[in-house]
Simulated assay, not measured.
Amino acid sequence: MADGNGNGNGDASQADAAPSINAMVQYTKDFSFENPNAPRSLGPQDKPPNISIQVNVNARQVAEADFEVNILLEGSAGEGAALLFKFELDYAGLFRLRNIAANDMHPVVMIECPRLLFPFARQIIAEAVRDGGFPPLYIDPIDFAALYRKRLSDAAATAPAPAS
């Protein structure tokens, strides 16, 4: 029997109502690492390579409370004939979100879920680059909130103006 001070069955229902994000599973959907100029590219270089990295986040709802979230990381070191390596990683996770307000759902899926996935994707890339014969490439942390705001801003800028 529950008493008025929060002990008893009331605690369980309060815990059940707390917002939660659970990573059900994480996985590599697709991965490619290319070292097209090896072994020549593995020798000393005249100058540091130009490193380019792009990131994209996508999500889709797969069940009432479940979302698949993908981080697509593409990058390269060097350019043209001096290309050292390039990679493409599509890393995903299945997340179960509970008790999150409808207006908060999209930001949580597009910011918090990729934030949980990123360290694992970063490690996969670092190890692949190292296994390719180069020093590991540790990608700097990504500000997924800023990425989300930019995506919203870009979408608003390309949206057609409402008809008067």
Rank of each mutant, 00 (worst) to 15 (best):
Pro44His: 15
Gln45Asp: 02
Gln45Ala: 15
Asp46Ile: 02
Pro48Val: 01
Pro49Asn: 12
Asn50Cys: 02
Ile51Trp: 15
Ser52Gly: 10
Ser52Arg: 08
Gln54Leu: 12
Gln54Glu: 11
Asn56Ile: 03
Val57Thr: 09
Asn58Pro: 01
Asn58Phe: 01
Asn58Leu: 05
Val62Arg: 10
Ala63Glu: 01
Glu64Gly: 10
Ala65Glu: 09
Ala65Asp: 11
Val69His: 00
Leu73Ala: 05
Glu74Arg: 15
Gly75Met: 05
Gly78Asn: 10
Gly78Ile: 05
Glu79Cys: 04
Ala81Trp: 11
Leu83Cys: 03
Leu84His: 05
Lys86Thr: 08
Lys86Val: 03
Phe87Pro: 02
Phe87Asp: 02
Phe87Trp: 02
Leu89Ser: 03
Asp90Gly: 03
Ala92Val: 02
Ala92Tyr: 02
Ala92Phe: 04
Gly93Asp: 01
Phe95Cys: 12
Phe95His: 07
Arg98Asn: 05
Arg98Pro: 00
Asn99Met: 11
Asn99Val: 09
Ile100Trp: 00
Asn103Val: 08
His106Val: 04
His106Pro: 00
His106Glu: 03
Pro107Thr: 13
Val108Lys: 11
Val109Asn: 10
Met110Phe: 00
Met110Gln: 06
Glu112Phe: 13
Glu112Gly: 08
Glu112Pro: 05
Glu112Ser: 13
Cys113Glu: 00
Pro114Phe: 12
Arg115Phe: 08
Pro119Val: 06
Phe120Ala: 13
Ala121Cys: 11
Ala121Ser: 14
Arg122His: 14
Arg122Val: 00
Ile124Trp: 07
Ala126Tyr: 00
Ala126Gly: 10
Ala126Asp: 04
Glu127Tyr: 12
Ala128Cys: 11
Val129Asp: 13
Asp131Arg: 15
Gly132Asn: 13
Gly132Lys: 14
Gly133Cys: 07
Pro135Trp: 00
Leu137Trp: 02
